[in-house]
Design a binder for these strands. Structure first.
Length: 327
DNA sequence: CGACTTTGACCCGCGC
DNA sequence: GCGCGGGTCAAAGTCG
């Protein structure tokens, strides 16, 4: 693993030049243009995760989905609603194929999504509370529906997923997570890990799994929104992350929100999300690199399909944003 | 000793 | 109704 080629982080193999990249090939993607990766931007991304400053509508805006082209694709959400980017294809904003093939999207797909959501999350969430607080509400475990009543449906948290090229499965995002499970994934040699935010009363969860078609890609799915700020004591994570150049301290603190316009940034730094410009590999001030799509359309279909297969057609799929760690 | 990970078992929804 | 697969629990183990 440590022998993994470094340029995984430097190049967009995944979003290779021709929109038709078969996996990562020569990785000679449009080399670093001139997009700089400024601290506040990652902070904003974190804030997106946090949900404290931005809701999912903001996310929608942040990723450059102009109403003109994406309003049909996105269903605005409140509480447990989803943002869906296409039903079969995950084309985010792009030049031509913005609306996906089986786009029944809009309201109907949203509804379907919400329905499915409520089904799936109905069950366990009640139990989670108990375990997290150290107590268990009811009987011992494994004796049936502890906590919640059966019929009682639990609202589904909003989710979104993104894919990242990374050697490490669990990407640091500033929050503290506790792993609570791991499952083998069908048709994949790589397991899926389940994490929960360790902050009390914060029910945010995330799933992390590796693409079985391209093991260098990590698919991370967040569920829920943090109801607390970034932990200040990160067990060294913040420092480590910052040192690694993934985020800088100011990003973690996200003190720039007031002056930072996410849409502007995403328009500038992720042009592919809002138009048809070329994507590029960028360099942070700290010398780390992020992989950007050249075009959201260029999210390779296999990944889209894979996400779909995974059941990861979540509320939102965003491209890799985590820069490389420095050794 | 507390925080975290590992892991086998269990629960539940869904498709057949 | 049954089996499968996804998601979760919690005891035990590990680590700092």
């Amino acid at each position: 693993m440590s022998s993994e080629p470094r340029d995984l982080y430097y190049r967009s193999q995944f979003y290779d030049d021709d929109h038709h990249h078969q996996q990562h090939g020569t990785g000679s993607s449009a080399a670093s243009q001139d997009h700089q990766f400024d601290p506040p931007q990652m902070g904003t991304f974190i804030d997106c995760l946090n949900g404290g400053f931005m809701d999912y509508n903001s996310l929608e805006k942040a990723f450059g989905m102009s109403p003109a082209t994406s309003s049909e694709v996105f269903s605005s959400i409140e509480g447990n609603q989803k943002v869906i980017i296409g039903e079969g294809d995950l084309h985010l904003g792009s030049d031509q194929n913005m609306v996906t093939q089986n786009s029944s999207i809009s309201s109907s797909s949203t509804e379907a999504g919400a329905e499915e959501d409520s089904c799936k999350s109905t069950k366990k969430d009640g139990q989670l509370k108990g375990s997290d607080d150290g107590g268990d509400g009811e009987n011992s475990k494994k004796t049936g529906n502890k906590g919640k009543k059966k019929g009682e449906k639990r609202e589904k948290e909003p989710r979104f997923a993104f894919m990242t090229k990374s050697e490490v499965d669990h990407l640091e995002d500033g929050y503290r997570w506790r792993k609570y499970g791991q499952k083998a994934v069908k048709n994949s040699p790589y397991p899926r890990s389940y994490y929960r935010c360790t902050t009390q009363k914060c029910g945010v969860k995330k799933r992390v799994e590796r693409s079985f078609q391209d093991p260098s890609i990590v698919i991370t799915t967040y569920e829920g929104q943090h109801n607390h700020p970034l932990p200040t004591t990160l067990r060294g994570n913040a420092a480590a992350v910052a040192a690694a150049g993934m985020f800088q301290p100011s990003m973690l603190m996200s003190t720039h929100m007031s002056s930072f316009n996410p849409q502007e940034w995403f328009g500038t730094y992720l042009p592919s999300l809002s138009n048809n410009q070329q994507g590029s590999t960028t360099t942070t001030g700290a010398g780390s690199h992020a992989v950007y799509p050249q075009n959201m359309n260029s999210i390779d279909q296999q990944y889209q399909q894979q996400l779909h297969d995974y059941g990861l057609l979540q509320d939102m799929i965003v491209p890799s944003m985590f820069p490389k760690r420095e050794p």
